[in-house]
Design a binder for these strands. Structure first.
Length: 334
DNA sequence: GGCCAGGGGATTA
DNA sequence: TAATCCCATGGC
């Protein structure tokens, strides 16, 4: 983002620049459009803008001139604007900059030709460490839903119940609504968000989270995975898939392997598994992807979604079209 | 106009 | 345990 554009058109407070130099395995499109987050938007200059922890932020990546695969991450934001150390620490963690993705990709792609293609497609993915509450509600909304509509629902939710945090190019910006705010709403207060049957889940989950002031949720990172999972699954609207996404995208549980309809297709079409055998898929992921199950999952998820969009012929030829090969075989026999 | 979307919950068998 | 149905909503 240009300096002038920032100072000219924002009422979001003083934006401060944070730079991380010589960052590898980092691609903004891979990171922000692989389905792990819903409030970042691509800008005309190729940067991405979003709202994080109630603050506006804009991120750009400038590849190094010697084309050695490194580049500089540049962040304009007013988050922790007066505390450089805290700001650096926050963004370094948010973008998972202390993890060696080169090494992880090498491990995952050895002896896995599917993963090699996936990493070739989205090798710049980084697992974001996002706000836990926002991630929980966002992925409750995500169930049996599609990504554009999820984004739309979340934006309405923020507009209706978030805090107005300023203007950008004349458009108002809103924070993600707090636990306290959502916990006092009736379900019909959420009607305008077009959440469907998920409105009840959100309203109920918010009340439960609010009972302890969000303490358990906020402590999720330091909790053992089993206890954390048990807590998340106790929340209405949270099943295994949503719980895994929350643990992966906001609580640093990199080993979890969320399985949705896309991953079922991948595991059935590309790894030869039965589409209905979810526990078998979990076993496969544990054995073959180990502590990096969640990162592997994001490479694969991103790969098949882009393949369907950009090369539907190959997508169909690989047997990824639903219904699965297995279902087609059954229909043939009828 | 039926199918699909980053599923979960309740009921059934 | 595993299968099945239903749950709102909107794009196609």
């Amino acid at each position: 983002m240009e300096n002038g554009a920032v100072s000219e058109s924002n009422m979001t407070g003083t934006l401060v620049k944070t730079v991380f130099k010589n960052v590898m395995d980092f691609d903004l499109e891979d990171i922000f459009e692989c389905g792990q987050c819903f409030r970042w938007r691509r800008q005309p200059d190729g940067s991405y803008s979003g709202i994080v922890e109630g603050s506006f932020a804009n991120v750009s990546y400038i590849a190094g001139e010697d084309s050695d695969g490194t580049g500089d991450v540049k962040i304009w934001s007013n988050l922790f604007a007066s505390d450089r150390e805290r700001r650096d620490r926050y963004w370094r963690n948010y973008f998972d900059l202390d993890r060696n993705y080169t090494r992880i990709k090498r491990i995952l792609t050895t002896e896995d030709s599917v993963m090699r293609k996936a990493v070739r497609t989205g090798g710049g993915i980084r697992i974001l460490n996002q706000n836990k509450w926002e991630t929980l509600i966002s992925f409750i909304i995500s169930q049996n839903n599609n990504i554009p509509r999820i984004q739309g629902c979340i934006e309405i939710l923020c507009r209706e119940h978030g805090r107005n945090i300023g203007l950008l190019h004349g458009e108002p910006l809103y924070s993600f609504p707090s636990v306290d705010r959502l916990s006092v709403l009736n379900e019909d207060d959420l009607d305008v968000c077009r959440l469907g049957y998920r409105a009840r889940y959100i309203s109920q989950a918010a009340r439960i989270v609010a009972m302890d002031g969000g303490m358990v949720l906020e402590d999720g990172e330091s909790m053992p995975k089993a206890a954390l999972e048990e807590y998340l699954l106790s929340l209405p609207g949270v099943g295994p898939k949503v719980a895994n996404c929350v643990m992966l995208f906001s609580m640093k549980k990199a080993e979890v392997f969320p399985i949705d309809v896309w991953m079922r297709r991948v595991m059935a079409g590309l790894y030869g598994m039965s589409e209905r055998n979810l526990s078998g898929m979990q076993d496969y992921a544990k054995r073959n992807f180990g502590e990096y199950g969640g990162i592997a999952q994001q490479y694969l998820f991103n790969y098949v979604r882009k393949l369907k969009r950009d090369d539907p012929t190959t997508y169909a030829r690989l047997g990824l079209d639903s219904p699965s090969m297995e279902d087609r075989d059954e229909k043939r026999m009828i």
